[in-house]
Simulated assay, not measured.
Amino acid sequence: MFNSFKNVTGAIMLAVLGVAASAEELRIGTASLGGAFYPMGQSIANIVNKYAGDDISMVPIVTGGSVQNPNLIASGEVEIAITNNNLAVLATRGAGPYSAAGPIDIGAVAALHPSVLHMVVLADSDIRSIEDLRGKSVAVGPAGGGTLGFVNFLFPLHGMTIDDITPSFVSYSDGFSQLTDGTVDAALALSGYPAGAVMQASAGADLRFISFSEGMLDAALEANDAYLAVDLGADVYGMEEGGTLIGVNNMLVAPNSLDAATVQAVTAAIFDNLEEFQAENAYARQIDPAMTQQLSIPLHAGAQAYFDAQ
Rank of each mutant, 00 (worst) to 15 (best):
H158P: 03
V184T: 08
N281S: 10
P298R: 08
I162W: 04
T92S: 04
M239F: 15
G192E: 09
K6S: 15
P142C: 00
G247M: 12
A36M: 02
D206R: 12
V78N: 03
V89D: 11
I47C: 08
T183I: 10
G238V: 00
G204Q: 07
S171T: 15
D288Y: 04
P255R: 11
D259V: 05
D288C: 00
D174N: 12
I210C: 07
G53W: 06
S125R: 10
S22I: 00
S257L: 11
L90M: 14
N49T: 02
A81R: 11
P97S: 14
I130H: 10
M1I: 06
F153A: 05
V170I: 10
D308A: 12
A223L: 06
M216V: 01
E222R: 15
P114G: 04
Q264S: 15
G242K: 00
P114K: 14
D163A: 12
T166Y: 13
P255W: 03
P39M: 08
V230M: 12
S4L: 13
E79R: 13
Q278S: 15
R93I: 03
G53M: 05
V48W: 11
N224L: 14
D105P: 09
V138L: 08
L228M: 14
L87N: 11
N49S: 14
L188T: 00
A187C: 03
T9R: 14
S125H: 10
A195F: 00
I270K: 04
R27Q: 06
F2V: 14
Y306C: 03
I162N: 12
A203Q: 14
D181K: 14
L252K: 10
L72I: 05
T267S: 10
Q304H: 06
G41Q: 10
D126C: 06
Q294S: 11
M216R: 15
N249H: 13
A226M: 10
A203P: 05
Y172A: 14
G107E: 15
A81Q: 08
P255T: 07
A36K: 05
T83H: 05
P70H: 04
P298I: 08
V89C: 02
F153M: 03
V67Y: 09
N46Y: 07
G102M: 01
D174G: 03
P103D: 08
I127Q: 03
I56M: 13
L26K: 08
M1P: 09
Q310L: 13
K50F: 04
A101G: 02
E241P: 04
Q286T: 01
I297W: 06
V19L: 07
T83A: 06
Q200L: 05
Y51F: 14
P298G: 13
N49E: 04
A52C: 08
M160E: 02
F155I: 01
P255I: 12
S43M: 08
Q278A: 07
F150N: 03
